[in-house]
Amino acid sequence: MRYYLRKLIGLVVTLILVSLVTFFVFQILPGDPALIILGLDADVNQIEALNRTLGLDRPLTERYISWIKGLFNGDLGISIRYNQSVSSLIGQGLKVTALLALYSMIFTVAIGIPVGLFLASHSRKKYSIPISIVSQLSLSIPSFCMGILLISIFSVRLNLLPSIGYTPISEGFFKSFKSLLLPSLSIALGSSAILIRYVRVSVLKEMGKDYVRTARSKGLSKRRIMYAHVLKNSLIPVITILGLLTADILGGSIIIENIFSLPGIGRLITVSISSRDLPLIQGLVLYLSLIVVICNFIVDLVYSLVDPRIRLR
C-alpha cells in the first residue's frame, strides 16, 4: 500500500511540475503576446481587448490557477487561429492521433515480440544476421524518412495505398485503416526495432538461469521451456519499454502526421506554433505530456502487479 501511495504522490507532483513548466515557459515569451498575435500595426484598443480575452491583464498566479481549473472543466480557452475552444480542437485531433498511436503500438508489438523471440532462440544461426541488420537499419532511420520511403514505394511506385490524407472510421473501417497503414508502419518499424532488442536481451538473460537448466534436465522440449517458462518471465521488463515507447510513438506522430497530412494533434501543434496561437500550444503541450506521464504511471502499476518484488525497493 505504501508503494502505491508513494507512486501516487510522485504522479501528482510530476503532473503539477509539468503543468507549471508548460504554463510558465510561455510567460517568458519576448514582447507583448497580443502584439505578436495581432501584428505591429494593431491599435491600442485591439491590443487591450485581446489582452482581456487572453486574461493577460490579470496577475500570473491567478492566471495559472484559472488555467488549471479550466483543465478540469475541459475549458482551456479559445484558440486564436481557429476561433474554437481549445478542448474541442484537441478532442477532434485526439481521435486521429489515438487511432494512429494504437495501430502503431499494435504493429510494434506484433513485429517486436515474435522477432525478438526468434533472434533470441536462433542467436547463432546465419539467418539471424540479416534480421539483425534490418532491425538495426529500421532503428536508425528516422520515422519521417521511413514515412517518405514508404510513400515512395507503396504510393508513388506501386500505387497501392493513399499517400496522404485521413479517412475517418465512420466511412468504413477498412478505408480508414488503409489511410493510417503507412503512417503507423513508419512509426512502428522504428519502435519495434527497439522492442526487438529488449526482448532478445531479456530472453537471453532468462535462458541462462538455473530454472531453465532444471527444466532442460527434466527433459522438457526447448519449445515448451520457451513458451511455458521463459516467455512469461522475460516479458516483465519489456512492459517498462512499452511505456517508454508510448512517449516515443506520440513524439513520432507529431512529424508523421505532418508528412501524411493527418488532422491529428501533431498537425495542430505545428499549425499552432507557426501561427503563435498561445492558448492552443499550451493546451496541446499539456495534454500530450499528461498522457505520457499517466502512461508511465500505469506501466509502473502494471509492473508492480506482475512483479510484486518491485514494491519493496
Binding site: 515557459v25 510561455f26 512517449a247 503541450v285
Partner: peptide, 15 residues
C-alpha cells in the same frame, strides 16, 4: 515527460 521533439518545439514557440 515531454515526448520527443515536443520540448524543442515548445522552446521554438517561445523564442
Amino acid at each position: 515527460a515531454f515526448p520527443g521533439v515536443l520540448l524543442a518545439m515548445m522552446l521554438i514557440a517561445v523564442f
